[in-house]
Simulated assay, not measured.
Amino acid sequence: MTRSTVFRRAAIVLASAAAFGMLSSGPASAAPVADFAKGAAELQALATEVSPAASAAVDALLGASVFIPKDVLEVGLTTPQDFMYPSPTLGCGVADKPATVTLASAQGGPNLFPQISANQLRFQAIPAYVAIPQSSELSVAWINLTTFQGGIVKLDDKLPIINTPLLSKIVDTGKGTVLATMFGTVGYADAVTCTVVPTVGTFTV
């Protein structure tokens, strides 16, 4: 095998591993990282044999990776995990009914959009009441059954500029099994307040 052929193969390994690591639809695994490191080492060694200019070009290429956030390199695509049951929601409803439900979920990272880092959960609520929230007093109480860390947080994220409550919050729960309950109220225009009866769920981070 000629040196140019080996050089091309090393470059292909490097590019393929990088693409896999950035576009994988699942959590990052050890294999792509190992392949990337192997391809990078081969490429650097071969570039040194070719010329100083080739070596400098490869070093610049690999050095550019320091500007890529670690979370982006490790990014995957995750899906929300539902709480055990929709939460009965009182004081508001559809078609003048006195009650409705609120769907609650938690989504783990790493995830690109919404941006969630590893060892985090994004708690979120979607009331069935059709209106734009004006205020949120929703909260989540959680405990990590693996580390025994826990807390109570308000779902007080807001949409930039228009300041509309998103009914969500990203929490540094740490890795493990998380037990959580969501409860509280959501305020709407015309003095309408939805009271969300507690729901519970367990989530893997």
Rank of each mutant, 00 (worst) to 15 (best):
R3G: 06
L90P: 06
D59C: 03
I161Y: 05
A54V: 03
Y85K: 13
T164L: 04
L167R: 07
L112R: 15
G176K: 09
L166D: 08
P80A: 08
T185F: 08
F83I: 05
A41P: 01
T5P: 00
F67I: 05
T173F: 08
T181I: 05
L73H: 01
V200S: 03
L121R: 08
E49R: 07
P198F: 09
K175N: 15
T79E: 09
K154P: 02
E137H: 04
F7A: 08
P114W: 09
L179Y: 04
A15T: 14
A53F: 04
G184L: 15
Q149R: 15
F183I: 05
S65W: 06
K169S: 12
Q44H: 07
G151K: 10
Y129E: 01
A41F: 13
W142A: 03
A131L: 09
G151V: 13
G201V: 00
T195Y: 01
V153K: 10
D156R: 12
G93W: 06
A56R: 11
T5E: 09
V192E: 06
A18W: 10
V186M: 11
R3K: 04
V13A: 15
I152R: 10
F148K: 10
G76C: 05
A131S: 15
P165R: 07
S4P: 03
T79M: 14
F20C: 11
L61Q: 02
A125W: 04
L90M: 09
E74P: 03
A31V: 15
T102V: 04
G184I: 15
T2E: 05
W142Y: 10
I12Y: 08
A30P: 01
Y129F: 14
T204D: 04
G201K: 00
D172K: 14
A41C: 10
L159E: 12
S65T: 15
R8H: 06
F148I: 07
T195N: 02
T146K: 13
S25N: 09
Q120H: 12
P69L: 14
K70Y: 03
D157K: 06
G26E: 11
T193F: 00
P69Q: 13
A180Q: 05
T146V: 13
V66E: 04
T89E: 04
V196Y: 00
Y188M: 14
T181Y: 04
L138N: 02
I162V: 11
F36H: 07
Q124D: 07
V33C: 04
G26W: 06
A189H: 08
S25P: 11
A95N: 13
K158H: 12
T181E: 06
P114I: 12
Q134P: 01
P198G: 12
L121W: 08
L61K: 02
T89P: 07
Q107N: 10
L103H: 05
A180D: 03
G21P: 09
W142K: 05
V178S: 04
L179C: 04
T173P: 09
P127F: 10
A128Y: 11
G39T: 14
S24Y: 08
S25V: 14
V196F: 00
V101R: 06
S25Q: 11
Y85G: 01
A141F: 00
L112H: 12
N163K: 14
T185S: 15
A40E: 11
V196W: 00
L112T: 11
T100K: 02
S139K: 14
V153S: 08
E42R: 12
S29H: 13
S16T: 13
Q149A: 15
D82L: 06
L14Q: 12
L121I: 11
S65D: 03
L62N: 03
P80Q: 04
A54D: 09
S29Y: 08
